[in-house]
Amino acid sequence: MIRPIIGIPLGDPAGIGPEIVVKSLSKTEVYQTCRPLVIGDKDVVLQALKFCGLSLNIHSIQKAEEGTYELGTIDLIDLKNVDISNLKIGEIQALGGQAAFDYINKSVEMAMSREIDAIATTPINKESLKAANIDYIGHTEILAGLTNTTDPLTMFEVRNMRVFFLTRHVSLQQACNLVTKEKIIEYIVRCTEALKKLGIEDGTMAVAGLNPHSGEHGLFGNEEVIHVEPAVQEAQRMGYKVVGPISADSVFHLALQGRYNSVLSLYHDQGHIATKTLDFERTIALTNGLPFLRTSVDHGTALDIAGKGLASETSMIEAILIAAKYAPNFKN
C-alpha cells in the first residue's frame, strides 16, 4: 500500500510547533506509516533541530512529488518567510502569527489540489495572529475561511473512542439551551456522514445524556424526555444507527470498550474531560466537513517552554498517525 503524504504546517515558529515536528520526524513509526512533508521555513527547522539536539538532513523541495520521505531526512516546502534574527522565541509577535498563517495557507492549497493526502496541524497562537492582523481566531476558522466551509465539525479520537460535540465554546447555560430535538437530529446526521467520509460505516452512535443518569425520566431534568429521546427516535426512523440518551457517566467507557462507534457529547467539557482524562497527549482533534482530512494536536504553543527542547512530541506523532490512518479511506 502506498503511504499517504501528510502535510505538516510548522505552526507558530516562536512556539513549540517546530520542536515537536522535528522530534516526530526522527521516529521510525512515522515513516513506516506515511510520507511526512513539512511546510515551513528552513531556518526555523534548523533552529528547532538545534534546540532538540537532533541531527537530521533537510531536503528543500518545490513539490510533494520531489520528496524522498526517508527516516533521517526532513522533506520541506521552504516558504522562506522568517527572518530568524528577528524571531523572538517564546513571545507573542506578528512575525509568528503571519508565518503560521502562511504555512496553513500553503498546506490548504496543496490539499485542495490533491498534492498531499491530509494535513496534521501544529499549534498556533491567537494573540500572534491578531498582532499580524490576521482576521481569524484560530485554526478551524482559518481552514473554514480558506475553503469556504460552513460550520466545520470537530471530532476527538483517543485510542478507539471517537467523540463529537453538539455545542462547544458557549457557556454551560447556553449549551443546555442549545440541546434541542432539531439540533440533535441535525448533528446525528452530520456526524454519521463525517464517519462515512473516514470510511467508518459499521457500528452505532450513542448520544450522551445531559443530566445525571439522563434525568431518570424527568425526575431531575427533562431535557432528555423533551428533546434527546424524541430526536434519537426520529433519527432511528430515518434509518440512522443511533441510541440514547446514554448516561454520561458510562457512555464513554462503553464506547472505549467498542459498544459504540462514536459518542455525541452534548457540551464541550463533557467530551473533553472524558477523552483527556483517558489520555491527554493522545487525544487528537479531527476537523470534518472540509474538502480534505485535517488532524491536529490538542494543545497550544506553550511559549513558556519554547526553545528549550522540552516539549513532548507524543501528540504530534499521534496526529500524524491518525491522519495517515484515515487518509486512504477519506471521501470528499
Rank of each mutant, 00 (worst) to 15 (best):
R3C: 07
I6W: 01
D12S: 06
D12K: 05
G15A: 12
G15S: 08
G15E: 11
E29P: 06
V30H: 03
R35V: 07
G40H: 02
V45G: 01
H59G: 02
S60C: 15
S60M: 08
Q62C: 13
Q62G: 14
Q62W: 01
T73V: 14
D75L: 04
L76C: 02
L79T: 10
K88N: 13
L95A: 14
A100G: 13
A100Q: 09
D102A: 10
D102L: 11
Y103D: 00
Y103I: 03
I104M: 13
K106E: 15
E109T: 12
A118T: 04
A120W: 08
T121A: 00
E127H: 14
L129T: 03
H139G: 05
T147H: 02
N148S: 15
T149S: 15
E157M: 10
R159G: 13
H169Q: 10
L172Q: 11
Y187W: 14
I188Q: 07
T192L: 03
T192F: 04
A194E: 07
K196F: 12
K197V: 06
M205R: 04
P212G: 03
G215C: 09
H217A: 13
E224Q: 07
V225H: 04
H227C: 10
A231L: 06
V232M: 05
Q236D: 08
Q236L: 06
M238S: 13
D249G: 05
H253W: 08
Q257T: 06
G258N: 07
S262N: 12
L264M: 13
L264R: 11
L264S: 14
Q270H: 08
T277F: 14
E281T: 13
L286A: 08
G300R: 10
T301S: 13
A302V: 12
G307I: 07
A311N: 11
T314E: 10
I317N: 04
I317Y: 01
E318I: 01
I320Q: 05
F330V: 02
